[in-house]
Write a protein that binds this DNA or RNA. Sequence first.
DNA 1: ATTTAATATCGCAATATTACGATATAGATT
DNA 2: AATCTATATCGTAATATTGCGATATTAAAT
Lengths: 108, 108
Amino acid sequence: MGASKTDHFTEEQNQIAIVAKALGHPARIAIIEYLLKVNACICNDIVDELPLAQSTISQHLKELKNAGLIKGEIEGNSICYCINETTFNVLKEYFSRIIFTVTNQKCC
Amino acid sequence: MGASKTDHFTEEQNQIAIVAKALGHPARIAIIEYLLKVNACICNDIVDELPLAQSTISQHLKELKNAGLIKGEIEGNSICYCINETTFNVLKEYFSRIIFTVTNQKCC
DNA sequence: ATTTAATATCGCAATATTACGATATAGATT
DNA sequence: AATCTATATCGTAATATTGCGATATTAAAT
């Protein structure tokens, strides 16, 4: 049918999948990296930075925010979006756990 | 138009996005966790473990393999799929780098 | 109050994903 | 050789994503 059966999986599995999915597009990775590079909040210059229309970037920003990867609010004329460290930490911890477990098993 | 413009982003950005995208579905997260749990290669019992048809699981396994998250080959009657530690390490390192950079910046 | 500037939302077309049943493939068993 | 078992692939329908232009929104500047 096309829709994924989120109710059949655990809360954590769904959560990790949501965050990973949000990172599953090069434009959104580029946005994250841009936020790191400028070391500050986004102003409109991100539109000049990426090869995408303003509306498309706005959509990507929304998805990143929904997934909890960035946080921020509109600030007057401009906007303040920045990386939400907490969510990235969750990801890092999750992958660290996987790697730790894998290291201690022998297979293939 | 719907297709993502991978040629406008860096090799690393596309690579991370591909791997993240492959993890962007709870069924595939569940498959990874199952591989960790059984601490061995997959046999057909994964079909009993997940609420999905055999063909659907096969499709998910293929995507995980394409993204380099699992590796393995068919072994006679059965199959040998297991976690590819290398790719998970790339992810972990990538997120570690992001977190390190974020920690040293003040924003919002 | 109008205009300007920056961002968000809407509507739409193109494409991709998800899921399943049916079928194919291929090694093991009889 | 025929059958069984396990996995892969095909075809297809439902849904989701991607991207853009047009428009809406909202605060600042004039």
